[in-house]
């Protein structure tokens, strides 16, 4: 046990937690997105509410969702721990610095980008997850299903909610564009042939997944307001 504690009190062990939790959250995103895409289907109410029921009752999904909560919490805690360590490592800052010459903006702004994702997560969990668990979500007529679909459509019919959603997904995209390949490096996986492939896959993932997530509220907004 002492060894385990020891690992996570050192730089590389702390980063291991970031990489493992970040990696798990990447997998979580795929699953979450797959479910959300149901909203693109016409007359998706029944399908979406059935999916919601599955997600809240299936024991396997339950285990995954607890792992997701733990991952988010650990990821944020260690972001703070590492962030503190990193600011303490340079008590006097440069009065003139040009970091853009040697590294990308998003690599240097992981904390800010993560914070954007975190703020979004809180809003997001409040409007759907919290309502479903503790709020008063009405039942769908003629079924034993909670009608989360109506709650989602109502949220996505508000322009400001859609804008927050889209901006947060942009933040997530930049977070992932650096984070995806970074996790491999942290785990010690760097290879002449595979690393360029990992970077390409990471970039495609970082653009495609948040873009698809963001498209859903935009689509709902446009159809609900009879623009599309």
């Amino acid at each position: 046990m002492a060894t385990v504690v020891n690992i996570f009190s050192h730089t590389i062990g702390r980063k291991l937690i970031m990489a493992l939790t970040g990696g798990f959250l990447i997998i979580f995103l795929i699953g979450h997105l797959a479910g959300n895409l149901v909203l693109f289907v016409e007359d998706s109410q029944l399908a979406f509410n059935e999916y919601t029921k599955f997600m809240t009752t299936n024991p396997f999904v339950k285990v995954l969702s607890y792992l997701t909560y733990i991952s988010i919490i650990l990821h944020v805690i260690y972001a703070i721990v590492l962030g503190r360590m990193n600011t303490q490592a340079r008590p006097v800052r440069y009065s003139y610095n040009k970091p853009a010459q040697s590294s990308t903006w998003n690599a240097r702004s992981m904390t800010l980008l993560g914070l954007i994702v975190l703020v979004f997560l809180i809003i997001h969990l409040k409007s759907f997850w919290f309502e479903l668990k503790f709020g008063a979500v009405p039942m769908m007529e003629g079924t034993d299903l909670k009608d989360l679909h109506t709650v989602v459509i109502a949220a996505f019919s508000q322009w400001w909610y859609v804008i927050i959603y889209v901006l947060a997904m942009a933040g997530l995209a930049y977070h992932l564009d650096h984070g995806f390949q970074s996790a491999f490096q942290t785990l010690g996986l760097n290879h002449k042939a595979y690393t360029p492939v990992i970077k390409s896959i990471g970039r495609i993932f970082a653009i495609a997944v948040p873009a698809l997530f963001a498209l859903i509220p935009v689509y709902v907004y446009l159809t609900q307001n009879n623009i599309l």
């Binding site: 050192h10 730089t11 590389i12 990193n86 490592a89 690599a107 240097r108 970074s182 490096q185 942290t186």
Partner: peptide
């Protein structure tokens, strides 16, 4: 690595600067 931490260097965010 232990000595590196002890000296007060930061951790690696893989910016590759």
């Amino acid at each position: 690595v232990a000595q590196m931490d002890e000296e007060g260097f930061g951790s690696c965010t893989n910016t590759y600067a």
